[in-house]
Amino acid sequence: MIFPGATVRVTNVDDTYYRFEGLVQRVSDGKAAVLFENGNWDKLVTFRLSELEAVK
């Protein structure tokens, strides 16, 4: 189960963010908004829950 605050990895091989890890900001309607941070940039991207896996 994916909840806000969880760290997730993108599993969709066709996505630009494949294998990126980010922090879930919100979850609704089968989608999750994931925040990616890297140095001087932040990006908030929405994914279907089926495209994400929780990082242990």
Score class of each variant (00 low, 15 high):
residue 54 A to V: 15
residue 38 N to I: 14
residue 39 G to E: 09
residue 34 V to N: 00
residue 48 R to V: 09
residue 13 V to F: 07
residue 31 K to S: 09
residue 50 S to H: 09
residue 4 P to Y: 06
residue 3 F to R: 12
residue 43 K to S: 10
residue 2 I to L: 06
residue 26 R to Q: 12
residue 14 D to K: 12
residue 32 A to P: 01
residue 41 W to R: 09
residue 47 F to R: 04
residue 22 G to Y: 03
residue 1 M to S: 12
residue 45 V to C: 09
residue 9 R to G: 02
residue 15 D to G: 07
residue 25 Q to W: 12
residue 24 V to L: 03
residue 27 V to D: 00
residue 34 V to I: 07
residue 2 I to F: 07
residue 21 E to S: 08
residue 56 K to G: 12
residue 30 G to W: 04
residue 56 K to F: 13
residue 25 Q to S: 06
residue 6 A to E: 07
residue 7 T to F: 12
residue 39 G to Y: 08
residue 17 Y to S: 03
residue 54 A to F: 14
residue 3 F to P: 03
residue 37 E to C: 15
residue 19 R to C: 11
residue 16 T to N: 09
residue 53 E to R: 06
residue 17 Y to F: 10
residue 30 G to A: 05
residue 30 G to R: 04
residue 29 D to M: 08
residue 25 Q to V: 15
residue 21 E to Q: 10
residue 5 G to A: 02
residue 46 T to W: 15
residue 34 V to F: 01
residue 30 G to H: 05
residue 10 V to K: 01
residue 37 E to N: 14
residue 3 F to L: 10
residue 13 V to T: 09
residue 1 M to K: 11
residue 18 Y to G: 03
residue 32 A to M: 02
residue 32 A to Q: 01
residue 50 S to Q: 09
residue 33 A to T: 14
residue 20 F to C: 14
residue 41 W to G: 13
residue 4 P to S: 06
residue 48 R to K: 13
residue 44 L to G: 03
residue 31 K to M: 14
residue 52 L to W: 02
residue 56 K to S: 13
residue 5 G to D: 02
residue 15 D to K: 05
residue 48 R to A: 13
residue 52 L to R: 00
residue 51 E to M: 05
residue 35 L to F: 09
residue 3 F to V: 13
residue 7 T to G: 03
residue 10 V to R: 01
residue 41 W to P: 12
residue 12 N to F: 04
residue 44 L to T: 09
residue 50 S to C: 10
residue 53 E to W: 05
residue 29 D to Q: 08
residue 5 G to S: 04
residue 48 R to T: 10
residue 11 T to F: 04
residue 12 N to L: 07
residue 30 G to S: 05
residue 9 R to S: 04
residue 11 T to K: 09
residue 42 D to F: 15
residue 20 F to Y: 11
residue 35 L to W: 11
residue 13 V to M: 09
residue 36 F to A: 00
residue 42 D to H: 15
residue 50 S to G: 08
residue 28 S to T: 10
residue 8 V to K: 00
residue 47 F to Y: 14
residue 17 Y to M: 08
residue 22 G to D: 00
residue 45 V to L: 08
residue 54 A to L: 15
residue 24 V to W: 01
residue 46 T to G: 04
residue 35 L to E: 03
residue 7 T to E: 04
residue 31 K to Y: 15
residue 7 T to M: 13
residue 6 A to K: 05
residue 49 L to Y: 05
residue 47 F to M: 05
residue 3 F to K: 10
residue 51 E to Q: 06
residue 20 F to D: 03
residue 50 S to V: 08
residue 35 L to Q: 06
residue 5 G to N: 04
residue 22 G to K: 00
residue 7 T to I: 13
residue 34 V to E: 01
residue 14 D to M: 12
residue 21 E to K: 08
residue 20 F to W: 15
residue 8 V to I: 05
residue 16 T to F: 14
residue 30 G to D: 08
residue 31 K to Q: 10
residue 20 F to S: 07
residue 40 N to V: 11
residue 35 L to M: 08
residue 54 A to M: 13
residue 18 Y to F: 09
residue 49 L to D: 03
residue 30 G to C: 07
residue 40 N to E: 11
residue 42 D to E: 14
residue 48 R to Y: 14
residue 19 R to H: 10
residue 13 V to L: 07
residue 52 L to A: 00
residue 40 N to K: 12
residue 3 F to Q: 10
residue 30 G to P: 02
residue 49 L to T: 07
residue 18 Y to H: 05
residue 17 Y to T: 02
residue 17 Y to V: 02
residue 20 F to V: 07
residue 9 R to K: 07
residue 47 F to G: 00
residue 33 A to G: 05
residue 21 E to C: 12
residue 52 L to C: 02
residue 54 A to I: 15
residue 38 N to A: 11
residue 47 F to A: 01
residue 14 D to R: 11
residue 14 D to V: 08
residue 6 A to R: 06
residue 29 D to P: 05
residue 26 R to V: 11
residue 38 N to G: 11
residue 21 E to N: 05
residue 22 G to M: 03
residue 49 L to N: 03
residue 27 V to G: 00
residue 37 E to D: 10
residue 42 D to Q: 15
residue 19 R to E: 08
residue 26 R to C: 14
residue 53 E to Q: 08
residue 18 Y to K: 02
residue 26 R to M: 13
residue 13 V to C: 08
residue 6 A to C: 13
residue 15 D to V: 07
residue 18 Y to V: 02
residue 47 F to I: 05
residue 20 F to L: 11
residue 43 K to E: 11
residue 38 N to M: 14
residue 54 A to D: 06
residue 33 A to E: 15
residue 3 F to I: 12
residue 48 R to G: 10
residue 51 E to G: 03
residue 30 G to M: 05
residue 25 Q to A: 09
residue 13 V to N: 06
residue 19 R to I: 03
residue 20 F to N: 06
residue 35 L to I: 07
residue 45 V to Y: 05
residue 5 G to W: 04
residue 23 L to Y: 08
residue 10 V to N: 01
residue 36 F to R: 00
residue 28 S to D: 10
residue 15 D to N: 15
residue 44 L to Q: 06
residue 50 S to R: 05
residue 50 S to E: 14
residue 42 D to V: 15
residue 53 E to P: 01
residue 16 T to S: 11
residue 13 V to R: 12
residue 2 I to M: 04
residue 36 F to L: 09
residue 19 R to L: 14
residue 51 E to R: 02
residue 35 L to H: 07
residue 55 V to E: 03
residue 52 L to N: 00
residue 30 G to F: 06
residue 38 N to T: 11
residue 29 D to S: 07
residue 10 V to E: 00
residue 42 D to L: 15
residue 34 V to P: 01
residue 34 V to H: 01
residue 8 V to Q: 00
residue 1 M to I: 09
residue 51 E to A: 06
residue 13 V to D: 05
residue 32 A to L: 03
residue 27 V to R: 02
residue 42 D to W: 15
residue 26 R to N: 12
residue 36 F to P: 00
residue 24 V to C: 06
residue 28 S to Y: 15
residue 22 G to E: 00
residue 50 S to T: 10
residue 8 V to D: 00
residue 43 K to M: 13
residue 47 F to W: 02
residue 33 A to C: 13
residue 17 Y to D: 01
residue 17 Y to Q: 03
residue 47 F to N: 01
residue 53 E to L: 07
residue 19 R to K: 11
residue 5 G to H: 03
residue 1 M to H: 12
residue 49 L to A: 03
residue 18 Y to A: 04
residue 46 T to P: 03
residue 45 V to W: 04
residue 6 A to I: 12
residue 21 E to M: 12
residue 44 L to N: 04
residue 39 G to F: 08
residue 31 K to W: 15
residue 9 R to H: 04
residue 33 A to L: 15
residue 2 I to T: 02
residue 28 S to F: 15
residue 41 W to D: 10
residue 40 N to D: 12
residue 9 R to T: 06
residue 16 T to V: 14
residue 31 K to E: 10
residue 47 F to L: 06
residue 50 S to F: 09
residue 13 V to S: 10
residue 28 S to C: 14
residue 29 D to C: 10
residue 24 V to A: 03
residue 37 E to L: 13
residue 51 E to H: 07
residue 54 A to N: 10
residue 25 Q to M: 15
residue 13 V to H: 08
residue 52 L to D: 00
residue 12 N to K: 13
residue 25 Q to G: 04
residue 19 R to F: 07
residue 18 Y to T: 02
residue 45 V to F: 06
residue 6 A to W: 08
residue 51 E to F: 06
residue 52 L to S: 00
residue 46 T to D: 08
residue 10 V to A: 02
residue 25 Q to D: 04
residue 47 F to V: 04
residue 18 Y to C: 03
residue 37 E to Y: 12
residue 56 K to L: 13
residue 50 S to K: 05
residue 33 A to H: 11
residue 27 V to F: 04
residue 35 L to A: 06
residue 36 F to H: 00
residue 30 G to E: 06
residue 34 V to M: 01
residue 5 G to R: 03
residue 14 D to G: 09
residue 7 T to H: 10
residue 42 D to S: 15
residue 31 K to F: 14
residue 23 L to M: 09
residue 7 T to D: 02
residue 2 I to C: 05
residue 21 E to D: 04
residue 19 R to V: 03
residue 12 N to Y: 04
residue 10 V to P: 04
residue 56 K to N: 12
residue 40 N to R: 11
residue 51 E to T: 04
residue 3 F to T: 10
residue 53 E to M: 09
residue 44 L to F: 06
residue 30 G to L: 05
residue 44 L to Y: 06
residue 42 D to P: 13
residue 8 V to M: 02
residue 48 R to Q: 13
residue 37 E to F: 14
residue 36 F to E: 00
residue 32 A to W: 02
residue 4 P to M: 07
residue 9 R to L: 06
residue 28 S to V: 11
residue 55 V to H: 04
residue 20 F to E: 06
residue 29 D to L: 07
residue 43 K to P: 05
residue 7 T to C: 13
residue 32 A to R: 01
residue 17 Y to A: 03
residue 17 Y to E: 02
residue 5 G to Q: 03
residue 23 L to R: 12
residue 10 V to T: 02
residue 18 Y to R: 02
residue 22 G to I: 04
residue 54 A to G: 06
residue 28 S to H: 13
residue 33 A to N: 07
residue 25 Q to R: 08
residue 36 F to I: 08
residue 3 F to N: 06
residue 10 V to C: 05
residue 19 R to Y: 07
residue 44 L to P: 06
residue 37 E to Q: 15
residue 51 E to L: 04
residue 7 T to A: 08
